[in-house]
Amino acid sequence: MMQTNVVTKAETQVEHILEAFKERALDRVFFVACGGSSALMYPSKYFIDRESSSITAEVYSSNEFIHRSPGTLGPSSLVILCSHKGKTPETTQAAAFAKGKGALTVALMYVGEAPLSEESDFTVNYSWAPAGQLDPHPEIMNYAILYRLSMGLLYVKEGNTKYQKLLGSLEHLDTVFAKAKAQYAEAAKTYAAQYKDEKVIYTMASGANYGVAYSFAICILMEMQWIHSQAIHAGEFFHGPFEILDKDVPFVLLMGLDETRPLEERALTFLKQYGEKLLVLDAEHFDLTGIDEELRGYLAPLVLNFVLRVYAVELAEARKHPLETRRYMFKVPY
């Protein structure tokens, strides 16, 4: 019963927010967060960019959001903020700043109450599981909540029917994740054993998947494993970054199912021609049974992110470097 209440609470929170959408004239969405919380907002921006004819979306790092102070921020703005434990100072300050401009503010957090929720109009509490572990409620994980809000917004304002298809698809996400974990478990161990001593690993993707590549680079490889990395947009690869490629440079390429896949395919052709240390995770190889065909391009990043977390756990184990290890974060003033 307690687990059911967790889902019901989050869904009820979203329903209240959708009701608030009906009462506001909204023409711009600002996704505001830091680090991994910011990265997971890219798929929702991609959705709004493609699907909306009247609403635009931007992703901002919390501190720059305040200092840049977008001229379009105002009463017709929706500001969605995320902080895992709701204590990121920059994000809490960004919520207060947005409210001061008259914007409607929505906070996403794993915990129940925190400073971020106190500065926001609405709060949604998402479900979370440690890296590589199966979340008992992936239908209300952070990515899913963001899609519920962005697709729900376009449903309310423009009659976009993908919101209903999302709700049905999310019910199958637990099975999709379980199959993906079983499919890649051994491959992740093999990769970790082979690449555990690398000093640098680049990541690459495009479209709805770019945020996943960015998150793996800065949160897993740099923050949690102290491995040099950089997330490269597949469309930018041939405009400078490809000069770094040779047979000794490791790359992780994510290939999704959205409209930008040709960019990733072009990058793959070049990587295979001039590189050897390649990890290619292709969403075409996932079993997405139960996910609506029209939503597979949007939901593929969620599965790619989960699979990468399976790899992260194995890499940490092979390197004898726990994902929780930090030098500076939460330990020194910054």
Rank of each mutant, 00 (worst) to 15 (best):
H172M: 02
F286Y: 12
L153D: 05
R50F: 01
A20L: 04
S53Q: 14
F270E: 10
S120R: 03
V29D: 05
K85H: 13
A300Q: 04
S62C: 05
D258I: 00
A39F: 00
G211V: 01
A129Q: 08
V303H: 00
D248W: 01
S77Q: 11
P70R: 14
K272E: 12
A57L: 09
I140S: 04
E198V: 06
Q273S: 13
A217K: 08
S54K: 14
Y328M: 09
G297M: 01
P322F: 10
L263D: 06
K272C: 01
L73H: 12
Y46G: 01
W226F: 14
A129H: 05
L304N: 09
E119S: 05
R24L: 11
L257A: 02
L281R: 00
G207I: 10
A231Y: 01
M109V: 10
M1Y: 04
P136H: 11
A217R: 05
M151H: 06
E243I: 11
P241E: 07
V200K: 12
V59L: 13
M109Q: 12
A98Q: 03
A316Q: 10
E276N: 15
K196A: 13
Y42D: 07
P322E: 08
L302C: 10
Y46N: 08
V6K: 15
M1Q: 07
K85D: 09
Y202S: 11
L134T: 13
V252F: 08
P75D: 02
E15M: 10
D121F: 11
L271F: 02
E158Y: 14
D197C: 04
A213E: 04
L281E: 00
E90H: 06
K181P: 00
A114G: 15
Y334H: 10
L278W: 06
C219S: 13
G159V: 14
A103T: 08
V280L: 08
L308V: 06
E171V: 15
V280E: 02
A20D: 10
R50E: 08
V111N: 03
K189A: 13
V313L: 15
I218Q: 12
L271G: 01
D27E: 13
G297C: 04
H321L: 12
Y311K: 03
A213I: 06
L153Q: 11
F47I: 10
R327L: 14
G35N: 12
G240R: 13
I80Y: 04
V59M: 05
A103R: 06
E317D: 13
T190P: 00
R68Y: 14
I201N: 02
C219D: 12
F97L: 00
E11T: 11
M255F: 00
E186G: 04
T269S: 11
A188F: 06
Y328N: 08
Y155H: 15
V307D: 00
A193P: 00
A188K: 07
N305T: 03
L295T: 01
D248E: 14
R266T: 07
G100Q: 04
F238G: 03
A217I: 11
T175V: 12
T289S: 15
F30R: 05
P138M: 08
Y210H: 14
E317W: 09
P138R: 11
G235I: 07
K101L: 05
L263Q: 13
Q194P: 00
E64T: 14
A267Y: 02
E58L: 12
V303W: 00
S69V: 04
L295A: 02
S117E: 06
Y184E: 00
L104Y: 08
E51V: 13
A318H: 09
F30P: 09
V32R: 04
I48Y: 03
G211F: 01
E11Q: 13
